[in-house]
Amino acid sequence: MQRFTALFSAALLSAGLMGSMAHAQEDTAAAAEQAPAEAQAQNFSDAQLQKFADASKEIAVISQDYTKQLQEAEGDEAQQEVRQEANDKMVEAVENSGLEVDTFNAIGQAIQQDPELMQRVQKMAQGSAEGQGS
């Protein structure tokens, strides 16, 4: 469940990367619990940050899709199934990007704490979207 919480936090964060950054602040408490990423904040390569940006865009779409499904799900069991399915899709998106989930989460936490790093990742996300013609 901890992995899900971190990924869902990252999904909220990635939604902030694409639009308003207000979403990035929603899970500050969860990020504070996992503060070891702060020490690693400057250790991410441009390639890792680009993979994070690419995966974040996919996760933002997954998050939007599953947020709707979660709101429509009735009962705790149905909601848990939706959460698990969303988590599986998010993990798959991260792994397909070439990052490990822990690295993805560490980058997500680091950019919450480092506005300059967040701007770098935002520029990467915008640049890759233009390159793909999206």
Rank of each mutant, 00 (worst) to 15 (best):
S56I: 02
K89N: 01
V91E: 03
L99N: 09
K68D: 10
M118L: 09
G98F: 13
F52P: 00
E85C: 03
F104T: 04
Q48C: 07
N43P: 07
F52Q: 00
E77M: 09
A22W: 09
A53E: 00
S63A: 10
K89H: 03
E81H: 07
E77V: 10
I59A: 00
G75I: 00
A35Q: 15
A30N: 15
I59W: 00
S97K: 04
D102E: 14
K89R: 09
A55L: 01
R120T: 13
L117F: 01
A106C: 06
Q109T: 07
E95N: 09
N105T: 11
S97G: 01
A106P: 01
A24C: 10
K68Y: 08
I62A: 02
V61Q: 09
F52L: 00
E95C: 03
D102S: 15
D88L: 08
E81V: 05
Q25H: 15
D54C: 05
R120G: 02
D54L: 13
Q69W: 15
E81T: 14
E33C: 14
H23S: 06
P115Y: 12
Q112V: 07
T67A: 12
V94C: 02
A41F: 00
D88K: 07
M118A: 04
R83D: 09
G98Q: 12
T28G: 15
D46Q: 11
Q34W: 11
A47D: 08
V101I: 06
D114N: 14
K89I: 10
A53D: 02
Y66M: 06
E72A: 03
Y66K: 03
Q79G: 01
E116Y: 04
G75Q: 00
G108W: 01
A93R: 05
G108I: 06
Q79E: 01
E77P: 02
A35R: 15
S56K: 05
Q109S: 09
Q119N: 12
D46S: 05
K68F: 07
A31M: 13
Y66F: 15
Q40I: 03
Q69V: 14
F44H: 13
F52H: 00
A31Y: 11
A106Y: 05
Q112S: 13
H23V: 05
